[in-house]
Computed example of a mutant assay.
Amino acid sequence: MSQNKPVTIYTTQFCPYCIRAKRLLESKEVGFDEIKVDFDAAKRGEMTERSGRRTVPQIWIGDQHIGGCDELYALERAGSLDGFLAE
């Protein structure tokens, strides 16, 4: 298995979009650093400051902000996600 860029995903526990995004990454056997912001105002503030968005999930591949679940799936449909993930 090839090396992938680090993936960071800000989530909340019951968000269906967070679950979908994590499932896609897991189906590709991509590890990720999950930062749960449910009850952590500081982490949610960090996410908002980094992304400019208040919604979850917010996903980074390496240093590049991808966006949320819809953007992640759009990359997959376009055949670009594997390229973004590759080290």
Score class of each variant (00 low, 15 high):
Ala78Arg: 08
Phe39Val: 09
Ser27Ala: 12
Gly62Lys: 00
Thr8Ser: 06
Lys36Gly: 06
Thr48Glu: 15
Asp82Arg: 15
Ile66Phe: 01
Gly79Phe: 13
Val30Tyr: 01
Thr55Tyr: 00
Ile9Pro: 00
His65Phe: 11
Val7Ala: 10
Tyr73Gly: 07
Gly79Ala: 07
Ser2Met: 11
Ile19Asn: 09
Val56Asn: 05
Glu34Ile: 04
Lys5Thr: 09
Phe84Met: 13
Arg20Pro: 06
Met1Gly: 15
Asp82Gln: 15
Val37Gln: 01
Gln58Asn: 00
Gln58Lys: 01
Gly31Cys: 08
Ala21Met: 02
Glu87Leu: 12
Ala74Arg: 14
Gly68Leu: 06
Ser27Val: 09
Ala42Trp: 10
Ile66Gly: 05
Phe39Leu: 13
Thr48Leu: 10
Ala21Gln: 00
Ser27Arg: 07
Arg50Asp: 02
Asp33Thr: 05
Gly79His: 09
Lys43Trp: 03
Ile66Met: 05
Ser80Trp: 10
Gln64Thr: 14
Arg44His: 08
Tyr17Asn: 09
Ala21Thr: 04
Gly79Arg: 05
Gly67Phe: 00
Gln3Tyr: 11
Val56Cys: 07
Glu26Gly: 11
Tyr10Lys: 11
Ala21Tyr: 06
Tyr10Thr: 08
Val56Ser: 04
Phe14Cys: 08
Tyr73Leu: 12
Glu29Gly: 07
Cys18Val: 11
Gly31Ile: 10
Gln3Cys: 07
Ser80His: 14
Phe32Arg: 00
Leu81His: 02
Ile66Lys: 03
Ala78Trp: 10
Phe39His: 15
Val37Asn: 00
Asp33His: 12
Gly67Met: 03
Ile61Arg: 03
Gly45Trp: 02
Gly52Ala: 07
Asp63Asn: 14
Ala21Ile: 02
Val7Trp: 07
Asp82Ala: 14
Asp63Phe: 06
Ser27Phe: 04
Arg23Leu: 15
Gly79Ser: 05
Ser2Pro: 15
Glu26Gln: 13
Leu75Ser: 02
Ile66Leu: 06
Glu46Arg: 03
Thr55Val: 00
Glu76Asp: 14
Thr55Asp: 02
Ile59Phe: 01
Lys36Gln: 09
Asp70Ser: 14
Leu24Pro: 01
Phe84Val: 09
Glu29Thr: 08
Asn4His: 14
Glu71Val: 07
Arg23Cys: 11
Gln13Asn: 13
Gly79Gln: 05
Ile19Arg: 07
Ile66Asp: 05
Glu34Pro: 02
Asp63Val: 08
Cys69Arg: 03
Ala74Lys: 08
Gly67Tyr: 02
Leu25Val: 00
Gly62Gln: 01
Asp82Val: 15
Ile61Thr: 03
Gly31Asp: 14
Lys28Phe: 04
Ile59Cys: 01
Val56Leu: 09
Ser27Asp: 07
His65Glu: 13
Asp82Met: 14
Lys43Gln: 04
Gly52Met: 05
Val56Gln: 05
Leu25Asn: 00
Ala42His: 09
